[in-house]
């Protein structure tokens, strides 16, 4: 991470430290809009900060630390799609979505959508799952099954129906969204859309990896403080080697997943969505979310009874980690990684 990003990270951490755990949706959203976090990946000629995927990941990591409820990732994806599009009024739309506090959201998992028509007269049918904070959104970012179309769909039309899906992870409010012949505006079509979908899903994997590692780090720190403060058998629990070694194992898993994410971001610079970058994104997301789950599972055990109490935040991390393992592209990441690897070998 370069110096500038480090500074940005320090200030982000300071802001988030006051935001509570979990960081509430409304206040955090307001704050991140005000601080210009949604401008990170917008190029300078469109009045953005012109930073790359690494900046987006850094912010996702900080939000992950605090179990942020705000829909930063789907918003960032919609903004990225708009930036990449050739839409005439994109500057105006971007202004609303970055500093105007308007939300365009997207699915954090899979979707099953078909599109017909072109330009600003698209018709979309199908279903999106795990759309974050859909009730607060004015727009939806949608891509079709065949990746031939990426579109923005106004949320306030009768043909768009969002149904809340309350789940175990209370730090992200997810919705199923049905499109019954909804009208939409194309951001990209054909080969351009295909490349854009690859780019968006790739970015989503990296950002989810960062969110997971932020949470894993925060939870391990919290747990070590607890073990250090709690005295049993006339010793701090943290002095028992059986527990220390487990903490060390979690630390090393986090360190490797972090190194892999950072190394990947460095190596893909400017190549988001390429085959190589997609492969790296899959590995980073897989290793990070598997690590997050492992850390959360272990930390619940290491916390003892208090870990089972809802007032203690350990369970919030556990539930977020369990959900995160299932978010992203559907199907098995491990199997996808193996397949990409075997394909590379045979070339």
């Amino acid at each position: 991470m370069n110096e500038f990003l480090k500074e940005l990270q320090d200030s982000a951490r300071q802001v988030m430290e006051g935001a509570g755990t979990p960081a509430k949706e409304e206040s955090t959203w307001g704050q991140l809009v005000e601080l210009g976090w949604l401008l990170t990946a917008v190029p300078e000629e469109l009045d953005g900060l012109g930073l790359g995927a690494d900046a987006l990941c850094m912010l996702s990591g900080e939000l992950g630390r605090n179990l942020s409820e705000a829909p930063f990732l789907p918003a960032a994806l919609a903004i990225e799609a708009l930036v990449q599009s050739g839409l005439e009024n994109k500057a105006e739309l971007l202004a609303g979505l970055t500093m105007g506090g308007e939300l365009a959201t997207a699915s954090l998992a899979g979707s099953d959508v078909t599109a017909s028509g072109s330009g600003d007269s698209l018709t979309l049918n199908g279903k999106l799952v795990a759309v974050q904070s859909a009730d607060n959104a004015s727009q939806l970012l949608v891509w079709s099954n065949d990746s031939q179309c990426v579109a923005l769909v106004a949320a306030d039309q009768a043909a768009v129906e969002a149904v809340s899906r309350p789940g175990w992870d209370v730090t992200r409010r997810l919705f199923d969204v049905t499109l019954n012949g909804a009208a939409g505006v194309a951001l990209a079509q054909g080969a351009e859309a295909e490349a854009l979908v690859a780019r968006l899903l790739n970015l989503r994997d990296f950002a989810m990896a960062a969110d997971s590692l932020g949470g894993a780090n925060a939870l391990l720190e919290l747990t070590i403080v607890h073990l250090t403060d709690r005295v049993q058998f006339a010793r701090p629990l943290a002095s028992f080697q059986a527990l220390k070694h487990r903490c060390a194992d979690l630390k090393v898993e986090i360190a490797a997943a972090e190194a892999l994410l950072n190394d990947s971001l460095l190596k893909i610079e400017g190549q988001l969505g390429s085959d190589d970058a997609v492969f790296r994104g899959k590995k980073a997301k897989y290793l990070a979310s598997a690590t997050y789950s492992k850390v959360a599972e272990e930390c619940l055990q290491l916390s003892g009874g208090i870990g089972m109490a809802s007032e203690y935040p350990c369970h919030l991390y556990l539930k977020r980690s369990m959900l995160s393992e299932h978010l992203g592209s559907q199907g098995s990441y491990e199997a996808d990684i193996a397949e990409a690897f075997l394909r590379q070998l045979s070339i």
Partner: peptide, 23 residues
């Protein structure tokens, strides 16, 4: 399919080891 998944897991970990050593 089971072996392939395990292969995917090992690939990610080995890449993690390389990234950690480089860092």
């Amino acid at each position: 399919p089971v072996l392939r998944r395990e292969l995917g897991n090992v690939i990610a970990r080995v890449d993690g080891a390389c990234a950690l050593a480089d860092q």
